[in-house]
Design a binder for these strands. Structure first.
Lengths: 388, 388
DNA sequence: CTGAAAGCGCTTACAG
DNA sequence: CTGAAAGCGCTTACAG
C-alpha cells in the first residue's frame, strides 16, 4: 500500500532518508536518473514510489528562478474560442510551460495595469495579450509581453488575429457582383485588435476601389447590433452588401433584413466571419471567413516563446513546417435558399469539391496534394447569404 | 525618475538597505503598514517607490505555503462560455486567488491524471473540474477538488451545470401541445456532466409521462450531428419534437428538418439550450433555455473556496443573497415564422411582456418587482421553433 | 516598534 | 558517483 495518512506531501528529505542517501542525490535523480549508480537509483526509485513523492514545484521555481508559467490576458467576458486557448495551452505545455488565463475587467488601461502587476510578480515568464493593451514591452524589469493581433513597429501585420486581408477579398468579390454601397458592422473596436484591423481594411478597400460606404457601425459582436444597424437604415437606402464583424453579427443583420421584408441575398448580401458551425446550418447559411483558431493559438504562443528565449520571432507569414494558418477548404457553394423547402443540404455540401479562394486570390482545392506556401484565413463564398 | 536599468527586479533586501532598516521591517510593512512607526514607514515607503519594488510572489508562496492559486480543468477544445470562466476568475480574484485554466486532452481518465499531478505539485490550493473526472477528492495528500455539475454522494443535484430540470418542463409543455414521440440529440455525454444529466432527465420524463422516445442520439454538441439525426429518421417517423443538446445542435436539427421539406415548428418542434444570441436571431428563432453562466461560474468557485476553508458547502439551491442562477426573463413569444418576410422582429420582442416560466413552473414577469425565492435556468418558450 | 535568526523545499556549484 | 554547504526571497516566531 502506498497510502500515506499524513496530509502533508513528502519532501525530498524524507525520500532521501528512506533511501539512505543525501537529498542532493534525490534531486539529482529527479534531474537525470542516469547520473546515479544503478544501485543508488533503485533505492531512490523505491523511496519515491513508496512515499508517492512529487517535487514541490514552488520550491523548485524559487531556486531555479524559473516558474515555467505563462499568462494569457483576455478581456473580461469575451467569448473566446476554446480551440484557440486549448491550442495555446497545449503548445505551451509541450514547451514545458503551464498557462494561466487571466480575465481582466475594463478596457486597455485596466488590462495593462494587470499585466504590469503580473509581469513583476515573478510568477510568470511571459505574457500574451489577446486584447489590445496600452503598455508595450519596452519597460525594464519585465518579462516578455506579446500582444497578439497587434501590428509591430514597422506596421507589418503580425498575422494571427490581425489578419484582416480577407475583408479586401470579400469587398472585391462583392464589387465584382455589382455591389456599390457597403455597410460595415464592426466588432468591439476597443477591446479587439481583430475588429480594429478589419475596420481599417474595410475603409481602405472601399476607398481604394472607389466604392461607397454607408458607414461603419461600431459594434460589440452582438447580433442585436447587427439587427439594429439594418433596421436603422433609411427606406430606399443604397446599401446592398454588409460586412459583419462575425457570424453572430451577420445573423442579426440577416434577421434585420428579413424583418424589413428584404431577401438575403436577393436584396442584401451579408458576409460573416469565423465560419461558426451554427452559421453554416442557419437559413440562409452564412458566407463567412474560416480562420484556423488552433494555428493562431499555436503561433501566438510560439511568438512569445521566441521572445522568452531571445530567438528571432517566428515568421509571421508562416513556414511550411509550422504555418500560422491552415486553410480550411471544406466549404462549397450551395444554391441560394430563398424559401422552403431548402434545396441544399449542408451535410452533403462537404462532399462536393470545395471552391474557396484564399486571401491571396489563389484557387485551392483539396485535390491538390501540396498546399501553396502562403497560409491565411480562407474566404468561404459558399454560404447562401452573399449571392453569386 | 523611478527607472531602473537592472533587468532583475529589486529584492526585499535592497529595499531594506536603501531605507536603512532590516528586511524584516520591510516585510512587516508589506503585511501591515500601520505596524510601523510613522517615521520608519515613510522611509520604507520611499525605498519601495524608488526601487519600484514588488514582492516576489513565488518566494512568498514558498514561505507561507500558500500559493493563492486555483486551477480550473476543462476538456480540450471545449468551446466554453467566456462569461462563466470570467465570472469564476473574478470571484476567485475577489477572494485573493489567481485562477489557472488547464485544458486537458483526452477523456475523464486523462483529466483525472492531470488533476492528480496538479493537486500534488503544490502549485494550486484547489481544483475545479467543469468536466467529468474519475477520481474523487477522497485520497490523501490532496488539495480540495470540486467537480462542477456532478451529483454529490446523496445524489442531490449540485445545481450549476447539473441542473437539467428544464428538460422536464420542456417535455411536459410539448406533451401538453399534443406531442407524443420525442427524439433527444444529446451533447457530449462522455465529457460533460450537463449532457449526462439532461439525457437522464429526458429518459426519465418520457418514461414517467408514458410518452415515446424514438431514441437518444449521443452527440458531440455539433450541428452536424443534429442535422444527421434528422435526416436519418425514416420516412413516416412519428417524431414531432426534438430536445437538442444546445442551440448549435438545435440549429442543425432545424436545418435537417427544412432539408426534408418539413416545416418548423409546423411539422417538427425543436428545443435548444443556452439561449445563445445567435439562435434568437435565427430564422426560425430557437426555443431554448436561458442559463446564467456568470452565476454558475461564481457558484462553482464559491463551492471550491468553501471546501478550501473547511466551511460547509454553500446552499446549492442558492440564497436570496447569492443565487446560483439568476433567471433571465427577457424573452417573449413571437408569431411562428414560416416564410419570408418574417412577421416578427427580434428587436421588438424584448420590449413586450416576457412570458417565461421557470423550471418550478411559476410564471415570472419583469413587472413583479420581487423575484421568487427559487432560482434556476429559465425555459424560454418564446422562440419560433417550438410552436404554441 | 524593530532586528537577528531560522526555515519554507528545492537546485547547483564545489569538493571529495 | 555522491555529499555538505550555500542560497533562491520571502515570513514568522522570538528577543530585545
Amino acid at each position: 500500500m502506498a497510502e500515506s495518512t499524513s496530509r502533508r506531501p513528502a519532501t525530498i528529505h524524507e525520500v532521501a532518508s528512506l533511501a539512505g542517501v543525501s537529498h542532493t542525490t534525490v534531486s539529482r535523480y529527479l534531474q537525470d536518473k542516469d547520473s546515479l549508480k544503478p544501485k543508488t537509483r533503485v533505492k531512490v526509485e523505491f523511496a519515491v514510489k513508496t512515499l508517492d513523492y512529487r517535487p514541490n514545484l514552488v520550491a523548485r521555481s524559487m531556486r531555479t528562478r524559473h516558474t515555467n508559467r505563462l499568462a494569457i490576458v483576455l478581456a473580461y467576458g469575451m467569448h473566446f474560442p476554446g480551440r484557440l486557448l486549448a491550442a495555446a495551452s497545449r503548445t505551451a505545455h509541450e514547451a514545458g510551460y503551464q498557462v494561466e488565463i487571466v480575465s481582466v475587467e475594463g478596457g486597455p488601461a485596466a488590462r495593462s495595469a494587470r499585466i504590469d502587476e503580473l509581469a513583476r510578480s515573478g510568477q510568470v515568464e511571459g505574457i500574451l495579450a489577446f486584447s489590445p493593451i496600452t503598455l508595450k514591452g519596452k519597460k525594464t524589469n519585465r518579462v516578455p509581453i506579446v500582444e497578439s493581433g497587434a501590428y509591430d513597429d514597422k506596421l507589418h501585420s503580425l498575422a494571427e488575429l490581425a489578419d484582416a486581408t480577407p475583408v479586401r477579398e470579400i469587398i472585391e468579390y462583392l464589387a465584382g457582383l455589382g455591389h456599390r454601397t457597403f455597410l460595415h458592422v464592426s466588432g468591439d473596436i476597443e477591446n479587439f485588435a481583430s475588429a480594429r484591423n478589419r475596420k481599417r481594411v474595410y475603409l481602405e478597400t472601399v476607398e481604394r476601389l472607389g466604392l461607397r460606404s454607408a458607414g461603419v457601425v461600431d459594434g460589440d459582436w452582438s447580433a442585436q447590433r447587427g439587427f439594429d444597424a439594418i433596421t436603422a437604415l433609411p427606406d430606399g437606402t443604397d446599401v446592398t452588401a454588409v460586412v459583419a464583424g462575425n457570424d453572430v453579427v451577420a445573423m442579426g443583420v440577416v434577421r434585420g433584413a428579413l424583418a424589413r421584408g428584404w431577401s438575403v441575398p436577393g436584396d442584401l448580401s451579408v458576409f460573416g466571419w469565423d465560419d461558426e458551425e451554427i452559421g453554416r446550418f442557419a437559413t440562409p447559411s452564412l458566407s463567412t471567413v474560416a480562420v484556423d483558431r488552433e494555428a493562431q493559438g499555436r503561433a501566438a504562443i510560439q511568438r512569445l516563446l521566441a521572445e522568452i528565449r531571445g530567438e528571432p520571432a517566428p515568421d509571421a507569414a508562416g513556414t511550411e513546417d509550422q504555418p500560422p494558418h491552415i486553410p480550411r477548404v471544406d466549404r462549397t457553394p450551395t444554391e441560394p435558399l430563398t424559401g422552403l423547402p431548402p434545396s441544399a443540404r449542408p451535410s452533403t455540401r462537404t462532399a462536393t469539391a470545395p471552391s474557396c479562394i484564399t486571401p491571396r486570390g489563389r484557387a485551392r482545392s483539396r485535390r491538390t496534394a501540396k498546399p501553396a506556401h502562403s497560409y491565411g484565413p480562407v474566404v468561404c463564398f459558399g454560404g447562401d447569404s452573399c449571392g453569386v
